[in-house]
């Protein structure tokens, strides 16, 4: 059994990268301000990477490297896949929407405590409860 002393106190933060691109620095500053706002207002924000002007492949990669990855990752799998990954900075999420062929359709940086796509909806929960109750009411096989 794992002992308490075996559990790391904190996840290893990703390698801190030297940010060379002024565009990346600008986006990171923007994210920092937005995260600070979220802490006071609780208003979630999304940055649409498609709408960031002049986002070439190199800039994209250095932004991704700078944010790196944190402890949490999740995947929504329907006919498409949505990958949700907390970055090394808590509250900053990298959310990738892929189509049926696996290509990226939308990519967002969400600044929030938990991206909406992960939350359950009360309507779905009610429907789930109903189904569960039905299943429990059915006679169990002999």
């Amino acid at each position: 059994m794992t002992r308490l002393s075996d559990i790391p106190v904190q996840a290893e933060p990703g390698e801190s990268q030297v940010v060379e691109s002024p565009l990346v620095t600008a986006i990171l500053n923007n994210i920092a301000n937005t995260l600070a706002q979220f802490l006071t207002s609780k208003v979630a924000t999304a940055i649409d990477l498609r709408a960031v002007p002049h986002m070439d492949a190199a800039t994209y990669q250095s932004l991704k490297d700078a944010l790196s990855v944190g402890e949490v990752s999740a995947k929504v799998e329907t006919d498409v896949t949505i990958e949700i990954r907390e970055t090394q900075y808590s509250g900053i999420w990298w959310v990738t929407h892929r189509n049926e062929q696996g290509s990226i359709v939308t990519e967002l940086i969400e600044i929030t405590d938990l991206p909406d796509i992960l939350k359950s909806h009360v309507i779905d929960m009610r429907a789930g409860l109903q189904r569960l109750r039905q299943a429990l009411a059915e006679p169990s096989p002999p």
């Binding site: 999304a46 929030t112 909406d116």
Partner: peptide
Amino acid sequence: SRSDHSQMQVGSGDDVTFDEATAE
């Protein structure tokens, strides 16, 4: 313009995005 809305609020942190009628 495209660059103006690269960053936008997605809603209150306490909300689930869709209203009940849409989810229903």
